[in-house]
Every structure is written in C-alpha cells, then in structure tokens.
C-alpha cells in the first residue's frame, strides 16, 4: 500500500502566542509537527505494518518545516517531501488542498492519504475534506480505527453521537483522531536516518501548478480580552461547610 501522511508545522502548544504589530508572535517557542499530524503519521505507520507498503510524509510550508518532516521520518516514514514556494503566501485551506492534491498526483497517487483532524495554528479543520473533494476521492473523517481489506477501507468514526463505522473503496482520504493510538517515539535508528535524509523541495512549477488565489483572508489580529484571574479559595471545617459556601458563590454568579 502506498500511504501519504499530510503534516504541518506549528508553534508548540506551550508557546505564549500574542498578536503584536499586526503579526502573530510566539517568541522563541519551538516549531513542532502539528500534534494531530503525529497521529496521522502513527495511523499511516500502523497501516503500513498491517498491509506492507510505504509511508510518505508530505508538507506544504517554509524551509523550516523540514524539521517536522524529519520527525515523521524518525517515527518511521520512508520518505518526506516539502512543497515550498514564495508564491504560497496567504494560502487558504482551499489553496492548500489544491497544492496538496497536485503534490499527491506528482508522487504518483496513493492508496490512502491520512490527515490530522485540525491544526493548532489556523485550525480550520477543512483541508482534509477539501483535498478529498479536489481529488474526487471518498472522505472518511475523524477515524479512531482503520481497517483495510483488499480494495476497501473501513473506519470507526468518533463522533459526538457515538462511533460510526464507515466503508469506502481505495484510494481514500482519511483524517484521524487521538483514539488511533499514541504516536510512537522516534527510535535512535530513526533519528539517525532522519538526520541524514535529504528532503526534496518541490516548487509550484515542479507541480505544474499556479499559486491558488486566496479567497479567505485575514483583516485584523487581536488579543483576547485579559482574563480575570483573581482566585478565591473556599475554606471550611468540613466538606459540607465548604460545599455550602461554594454553592452560594456559584448561585450568586447567576450562571445557572
């Protein structure tokens, strides 16, 4: 099976992110592989282990995103490809989907393309379904479990209403959630392999594509209103006394 895992690089979730002078700043916090995309790589590797084949990690981003791709290689991906082009500034999700679809075609297609649920930065959660639509492939979203059987794939979708089992023919686009299993740690051998790997960088002209015109654009950045942090500790002699006081406080806030 030929499997592609789509990953993005984002600022670490511990980063203190602020809007500053019309830009987003995350100080000196590291850039990491988007946490959901670690699950995508994990899901892809599980399928490779189950059915054989290869896993290719694919990212649209700047040169720095090679580090995120190296993480995927260290986890066990066979190869990594970066699509990078100065003309990709202000890419929106439809644009990202078109570029990803073109890259997937250039790779020579795939049996399965695995995405994360959402990114930590822009977090639209649209790219997987849009890539599926551009490719004309079925979309099996929010998979917590994947099972390939011959030419078809069945996933357990994790929805608010419960689990839903959904089946489609390959090739298909999937997105995965945390229930797929903890992402494996890069092995020592994996890290060595990744550090030596040369990651090909494809430009738009390599893909035979032009820069998609952005449809969704940002007009303003704001910091959320500062949050009230004055904490009042409720104390008392017995749990009943504490509960009594706390109940009064909660009721007085008129949130019920």
């Amino acid at each position: 099976m030929k499997i592609i895992a789509c990953i993005k690089q984002v600022p670490d979730s511990e980063a203190k992110v602020r809007a500053e002078g019309g830009q987003v700043s995350w100080g000196d916090a590291p850039l990491v592989i988007n946490p959901f995309d670690e699950y995508a790589v994990e899901g892809a590797l599980q399928q490779k282990e189950a059915s054989g084949g290869t896993v290719t990690a694919l990212c649209v981003g700047t040169e720095s995103a090679k580090e995120a791709l190296k993480h995927a290689l260290a986890m066990g991906a066979d190869e990594a490809i970066l699509v990078s082009d100065a003309a990709l500034n202000d890419l929106d999700t439809v644009g990202a989907a078109k570029v990803l679809a073109a890259a997937i075609q250039k790779i020579g297609g795939a049996d399965m393309v695995v995405f994360g649920r959402q990114t930590l930065d822009n977090g639209a959660g649209l790219t997987p379904a849009q890539t599926a639509r551009v490719l004309g492939w079925p979309m099996l979203g929010l998979a917590g479990q994947i099972k390939v059987d011959g030419g078809s794939v069945t996933v357990e979708r994790v929805l608010e209403e419960g689990r839903q089992s959904m089946k489609a023919n390959l090739p298909a686009v999937l997105s995965v959630v945390q229930s797929i299993g903890e992402p494996r740690y890069p092995s020592f051998m994996g890290i060595r392999k990744a550090s030596k790997a040369t990651i090909p960088v494809w430009s738009l002209s390599d893909l035979g594509a032009s820069a998609p015109a952005p449809i969704v654009t940002r007009t303003e950045l704001m910091n959320p209103p500062a949050q009230e942090t004055a904490t009042e500790m409720i104390t008392g002699e017995t749990p009943a006394e504490i509960a009594e006081k706390l109940a009064d406080k909660i009721i007085a806030e008129k949130v019920l």
Binding site: S13, L120, D121, G123, I215, V216, T217, L221, M222
Partner: peptide
Amino acid sequence: FIATRPIYEGKVLEKTVCSG
C-alpha cells in the same frame, strides 16, 4: 461579512473575510 474566530487555540483572535 467580517467574522471573528479563534486561532492558535484561542490565544489570538482574527477577523477574516471571504471574497467568494
């Protein structure tokens, strides 16, 4: 239409428009 939405896990808000 100008929409307000959270980015970076709600650490920052953006206003955004759609030209389509």
